[in-house]
Computed example of a mutant assay.
Amino acid sequence: MAFAGFISAAILLVNAAKRAGIIPTSPFTQLAAPIAQIAAIGLVIGMYLLVSRKAGTLAASGAVISVTSLAGLVGVEFVLNLVFPYIGQDVVSVLRSGPLGIALTVVSMLFLVGTVIFMLALWVTSSVPKSAIVLYTASSLPIALRTVFPEIVLQLGLVGLAVAAAFLAAWMLRNVPRTAAADGVTAAQPASVTAT
């Protein structure tokens, strides 16, 4: 599942470059945008599975909220990339002022809350590098509150989140084999003790 983190990071960079006008908006960039959240679900689940023995209910609740909100953000990205560009700004304003606006806000707040809880659990209970945790959490803030921050801050948040996701994915790759080996040693110890 670590590779999901790299995929999410790559798409987040594409999204940031598209928003900054570095690359043009195209059907590819519009269709690729939601893949960042889909891949991020895999990253969060992988991280949770790696630390779940030590992390307890705090990490479990953070992971559940994060995965739920990321699933909601997939829908948000579809709306932002595949609906809003093709309708008038007045219609977008009407939609944002109704139930859709409430749904977008709720999903964004869930994303922020889930991120903070899950990253706090990682900070307290795991060996995940603190710099990656801080960067992931700080970068989530302008993404969750995208209507409050200037566009440049949102773009920096996307880049920061991409870097943090790649960092976490690399940490997972370095630690998964070690955890598996440790589990194998632990499982083998009782057999060797019994034999002696």
Rank of each mutant, 00 (worst) to 15 (best):
L73Q: 13
G21P: 02
A16R: 04
V176H: 08
F3D: 08
K54V: 12
A33C: 04
V64D: 05
G88Q: 10
G42D: 03
G62H: 02
K18E: 13
S52N: 14
A55Y: 00
G72Q: 00
L70R: 02
L12S: 07
Y48M: 04
I45M: 08
A132N: 00
R174H: 07
P177L: 06
A63Y: 01
S93D: 15
P150R: 06
V153C: 10
V153P: 06
Y48Q: 07
L168N: 02
L49A: 13
S192G: 12
N15E: 06
A144G: 14
S131I: 15
L43F: 05
R146D: 11
D183H: 11
A33F: 08
I65A: 00
V128M: 07
V153M: 13
I41R: 02
S139L: 08
Q30Y: 11
A165H: 10
M172L: 15
K130G: 07
V51N: 04
T57C: 13
N175I: 12
L135T: 03
F78L: 15
S26A: 06
L145E: 01
Q155I: 13
G184I: 09
L120I: 11
T179Y: 14
L112E: 02
V51E: 01
W123R: 14
K54D: 15
V185C: 12
T115K: 02
L73F: 12
A39V: 01
I11S: 02
N15T: 06
G46R: 03
A144E: 03
L50F: 13
Y48G: 07
S192P: 03
G88T: 12
G21R: 10
M47T: 08
T147S: 12
F111M: 14
P27W: 11
T25L: 12
A182S: 12
L12G: 03
T25C: 07
R174C: 09
T194P: 10
V92I: 14
M172W: 06
S8C: 10
A191L: 15
A40P: 00
I38G: 05
A39G: 01
A32H: 05
A32Q: 07
S26P: 03
V153H: 07
T68E: 09
A32S: 09
I143L: 15
V91S: 14
L158P: 01
M47A: 08
G62M: 04
I22K: 05
V163H: 01
I102R: 06
A181M: 11
S97E: 10
